[in-house]
Design a protein around this nucleic acid. Structure first.
Lengths: 231, 231
DNA sequence: TGGTAAGCCTACTGGCGAGTAGGTAAGGCG
DNA sequence: CGCCTTACCTACTCGCCAGTAGGCTTACCA
């Protein structure tokens, strides 16, 4: 406890609006992630943010608006983190691998964000559900496109759109679920967990129990390799 | 709606306790699945059930107790449905396949149950979260055991417990997510969706894009078609 | 046929929490 | 130094909803 801010003595220090808004958002993500949308109260958020309730309303609007803003911000941060980790030129399996690594890396370093996005947002009936479902839908579409593209690398009759989309939904769900599991079993590093999921979805149990595993092309340098990964 | 119960004229017909409790539970699952725990009100549940609020409290206790009871009932129904579909003597891949078919079959025919279990229960901080997490944990353990057992079929160094558990978590999550996707895209029969997930987790994308697919051993005489339509 | 218990109800309380009214200090600027 | 704008506060209102008090009615049985 800092002595310089004794015990929040009635009045907070004067700060420019932008800074306060940031503080409030951080507090909101924290509280929402711990308690969920309904159980979280504006009183508690304002307390954590170190300001009073009317400021919340003055700056961020209603509780629903605040929540939606949180979701948008955290979802955007996550999508950007993943996009930053993936190179569009790489072969599909490497792209998937990079995406998974980036995803688990983000979750590991932003647990509160993840809780808000995954647990809370998806279960509310309000406009946020739409907000979040939209983000999630984009992620699924992205993965689906990757899958379709990956079958273009072969001479196999391309996967149907519906099929690709459903597989992508399964993959995204597997990632979410594994991320939750990981939060309860945090002793393993992000890379190991990501690799495990990569092996599952790329090789399948059938190959795994036979001893075949996927591994990234040993040259990290992105020479135009086939990257058919083991096989 | 049945015309024989005009507009609930003040007083409901007298019924034995067991019957009423069933009606109430059904109504509760319905309302909880549509609105979520917090947004659902005891008033609405009692209205849907066709009785008055004090009956709720007299028969099923508090809102939290009611919710927990719903979760327990629906979770049990689902676990039993899946257990009924699986033969312990069959090889691991067939067991997994049977389990997936049973799971998607159940979800298709009990959408409200599924909503309550998956969406609502997991996001509340109360004792239900524990209730549900427990069920889910058991499902994961079951799958994990299946995986470990399946590597016993080979001469590969058996998978570590943690590894099996995390893969099981991913698989369960994939199933959940795919079930959700399916509810939004219900045109395909349960068997097709189940087969798709089976292929994903058993063969992996790597094999799928190469044109290899998993299929149930057709030697089994019991109408071993894979894409069975399920009503 | 009258007693009694089980099933059912209307109509309230009490608290919590979203949102607001209206006032106080602090910095900037002439 | 006074004025105004902006940041900030205390202290309310008001609706919603979990939970309850207390009374009515129907079925069954002696």
């Amino acid at each position: 406890m800092h002595a310089e801010q004794p015990v929040r003595p009635g009045r907070a220090k004067r700060l420019p609006r932008a800074v306060r808004e940031r503080q409030i958002m951080d507090a909101a993500v924290d509280v929402f992630s711990r308690l969920g949308f309904h159980a979280a109260s504006m009183d508690e958020i304002s307390e954590v943010a170190g300001i009073s309730k009317p400021m919340l309303y003055a700056y961020l609007g209603s509780k629903e608006e605040l929540f939606a803003t949180c979701i948008r911000r955290e979802a955007t941060r996550m999508m950007e983190a993943i996009a930053d980790g993936v190179e569009a030129e790489e072969p599909p399996d490497v792209q998937l691998w990079s995406g998974l690594r980036a995803f688990f890396g983000f979750v590991g370093e932003n647990r509160a964000s993840w809780q808000v996005l995954h647990r809370q947002a998806s279960s509310q009936g309000g406009p946020f559900a739409a907000e979040l479902a939209d983000m999630r839908g984009r992620a699924i579409s992205l993965v689906a496109a990757l899958l379709v593209h990956s079958s273009d690398f072969t001479n196999v009759p391309r996967a149907g759109a519906k099929e690709a989309e459903s597989l992508a939904a399964a993959l995204v769900g597997a990632g979410e679920s594994l991320a939750d599991w990981w939060l309860d079993n945090p002793e393993e590093p992000a890379g190991v967990v990501a690799a495990r999921l990569m092996n599952l979805v790329w090789m399948g149990f059938g190959d795994l129990v036979a001893g075949d595993v996927w591994h990234p092309p040993s040259r990290r340098a992105d020479r135009g390799r086939e990257g058919d990964g083991t096989a």
